[in-house]
C-alpha cells in the first residue's frame, strides 16, 4: 500500500523519473486543453449557442464572479491563475470515478507545487499592483515587530494549503481503499460520491484561499483611491 501516486514510477533515469502523478497530470492537462480547444474552436457570439459553450461560459463567469466577490476588482487579471487552480483540482477530484485513476492532488508533491505557485504568485500580484516598496512595507504593518510574524504567516499558510489539500485527497483515496478491502459492495460507492463532494469543496477552498491571499496583498493599493476619493 502506497500513500502517494509518486510511488508508482513508470520510468526513471537517475534524478529524472515519470511517476503516476506526472502522467495523470499530463492526462488532465490534455483533457482540459483539448476539451477547451474543441469547444472554443467555433464560438457563437449570438444569442443561440452550443450547450458545451454554454457550460464553459457558466464556469468561467462563475469563477470570475467569485473572484470579484472576494474583493478583486479586475477578475480578468487573476482568472488565468485562480481559475486554473480551481479547474485543475476539481477535474482531478472529478476523475476519481474512473477506475485505476489516482488523483495527482493526492500527492504531497503536487499540492506542495500548487502551494509554492500560490506562495510565489501572491507577492508577484501584490508587487505588480502596489509596487515593490508598498508590498514590502505591508510586512512591517502595523509595526516593525510584526515582520517575523508576517513572514511566518506567509510560510505557514502556504504549508497549510499544501497539507490541507493533500490530506483531504489522500484520505479520501485511503478510506476508499480500506473500505474496498472490508466491504467491497455499496459502501465504496457512497464514499466515492462523498469523495467527489469533498474534492469539489477542497478545490473551492484552495482557490478561494489563494484569491483571499492575493486580495490581501493587493488590498492596500486598491483601497487607496477609495480613501483619496472619500477625502
Amino acid at each position: 500500500m502506497h500513500l502517494s501516486p509518486d510511488d508508482t514510477i513508470f520510468w526513471q533515469y537517475g534524478f529524472l523519473k515519470l511517476n503516476a502523478t506526472i502522467i495523470f497530470t499530463w492526462g488532465l492537462m490534455f483533457v482540459l486543453a483539448v476539451g477547451s480547444r474543441l469547444v472554443t474552436r467555433r464560438l457563437s457570439t449570438g444569442l443561440q449557442r452550443p450547450r458545451w459553450q454554454n457550460l464553459l461560459e457558466i464556469i468561467v463567469t462563475a469563477i470570475s464572479r467569485q473572484i470579484e466577490e472576494v474583493g478583486l476588482r479586475q477578475p480578468e487579471k487573476y482568472l488565468g491563475f485562480l481559475g486554473t487552480l480551481f479547474l485543475f483540482i476539481a477535474t482531478a477530484s472529478l476523475c476519481t470515478i474512473i477506475p485505476g485513476y489516482e488523483p495527482p492532488t493526492g500527492s504531497l508533491s503536487t499540492t506542495a507545487a500548487l502551494a509554492i505557485c500560490v506562495f510565489v504568485a501572491v507577492p508577484l500580484f501584490g508587487i505588480k499592483d502596489c509596487g515593490l516598496d508598498e508590498y514590502l512595507r505591508a510586512y512591517l504593518k502595523p509595526t516593525l515587530i510584526m515582520l517575523p510574524f508576517n513572514v511566518i504567516s506567509e510560510l505557514s499558510r502556504t504549508l497549510a494549503l499544501a497539507i490541507r489539500l493533500f490530506g483531504n485527497m489522500m484520505s479520501g483515496t485511503m478510506i476508499l481503499a480500506i473500505l474496498l478491502t472490508i466491504t467491497p459492495l455499496i459502501f465504496p460507492i457512497a464514499i466515492s460520491a462523498l469523495g467527489l463532494l469533498t474534492g469539489m469543496v477542497q478545490a473551492y477552498i484552495f482557490s478561494i484561499l489563494a484569491t483571499v491571499y492575493i486580495a490581501a496583498a493587493t488590498r492596500t493599493h486598491e483601497s487607496r483611491p477609495e480613501s483619496e476619493h472619500k477625502n
Binding site: I22, W26, T110, A113
Partner: peptide, 12 residues
C-alpha cells in the same frame, strides 16, 4: 519528491 514538485510547477 522534489523532482515531481518541480515538474508539477512547470505542468501547472
Amino acid at each position: 519528491d522534489w523532482f515531481t514538485v518541480g515538474a508539477q510547477v512547470i505542468n501547472f
